[in-house]
Design a binder for these strands. Structure first.
Lengths: 215, 215
DNA sequence: GCCGCACCCAGGGTTTTCCCCGATTTTGCG
DNA sequence: CGCAAAATCGGGGAAAACCCTGGGTGCGGC
């Protein structure tokens, strides 16, 4: 019985490439592709796959938040984060969200395949570069501050901040998150309050530094 | 005789995916992969391929500059830009650099394959979304302005943009430049118009890319 | 001398943000 | 359970941003 996999990445051509690589192996079966976080969560709920390969930096609902939601709905699913960032905060947040592995996009495909095997065997997999970083932090007790700084904001607040930094208006964000404009305004206020940043420009820079959005 | 192709993308797993998709076709042959712009230029010079598929956003030597260098060395090579941005300025600069095609990463692989066929037949290929944009600009005569606008924000406009990106309010900018608020507003409007960016978040990102402000 | 362009300013309107307040419900955790 | 934090929504008002239109100056080039 093949490993049932969902691929989530915002670039179709990347999804197709991954699918082909994965399906060269008869023990892997790609059951769905998702172009964004929302779809990934929905598909994971519907299909209960074995593994979800999640691109961390996606527009809208990002990979970290998507990881949380997927695991909230389907705790048995293994989430494999696929990222181009070896940024410490990304790694910490992703793993904290419950991902079973963190693979850099700069890895060979074989590494991803190995990661799938490992997480299916209830293990955890990190790309070597990530492992090194995590180990270094682990022994030096570092990373804690970074994590704390990052999580000043609640998941929802980060989500709103990300959309703001992507240029969406309050109204648009409200629509996307299916909440009222007033709710989004409250978040914006809390974000500004917490970060002590009072312009969209500064918030955008913060979001970029934190990896919530891309340049 | 197959089409000889070089793939340049900074993510190995993406390169591998593309290679596999391309090599499913017997008439395509991937002769090399490059993880960055420099390698792409060097490999293109050494191997004189038929087509170079270039990711536009690569670290170091980016796709646009790489395109220029490749064509300077090997004018016969066809450069196909592969990009995740449908950003007007990227498109204009890339095409101006001499690329034969511009394919969005969000396209199906078949579209990329078609693009290769088209450029090999001495044609030009754009993803539909890009085509639409280019056509719209073309008929409205806008593209011309925008192309110029890439570098032709006037000094004063750049100054205003920089201050905006640093988080200053319109009023603060007016005070700093010792002009009226209305004047600054006019600049802001012209900047947004020229760059086709309509949120402070996007303007900030632009300013960072242009080196007008620091992250 | 006229044209284009950068620069500067303004009126008057709509929309959005920003900030103050208060409120309820849901959820995680000891 | 009970408490704190998170998430949700709302009113109301001041400020700012946004949009369109117009006009005036000076300067360099054809």
């Amino acid at each position: 019985m093949p490993v049932r996999i969902i691929i989530a990445d915002d670039h179709r051509i990347v999804r197709e490439g991954l699918r082909h690589l994965l399906e060269k192996r008869t023990d892997f079966k790609v059951v769905a592709e998702a172009p964004d976080g929302e779809s990934a969560v929905r598909l994971a709920k519907e299909l209960s796959p074995d593994v979800v390969i999640l691109d961390i930096s996606m527009p809208g609902l990002n990979g970290i938040e998507a990881t949380r939601r997927i695991l909230a709905e389907r705790p048995g699913v293994k989430v494999l984060a696929l990222s181009m960032h070896s940024d410490r905060r990304f790694v910490i947040e992703t793993l904290k969200a419950g991902a079973s592995g963190y693979v850099l996009k700069d890895s060979a495909f074989d590494e991803l395949a190995r990661a799938i095997e490992v997480v299916m065997a209830r293990g955890a997999f990190l790309s070597p570069a990530i492992t090194e970083m995590v180990v270094r932090d682990y022994v030096t007790q570092a990373g804690v501050d970074d994590a704390a700084a990052f999580s000043v904001l609640t998941p929802r607040e980060r989500e709103v901040l990300q959309l703001m930094a992507e240029g969406e208006s309050t109204k648009a964000i409200a629509g996307r998150l299916a909440v009222s404009v007033k709710t989004v305004e409250t978040y914006r206020q809390q974000i500004m309050e917490k970060l002590d940043l009072h312009s969209v420009a500064e918030l955008t820079k913060y979001a970029i530094r934190e990896g919530l959005t891309e340049l």
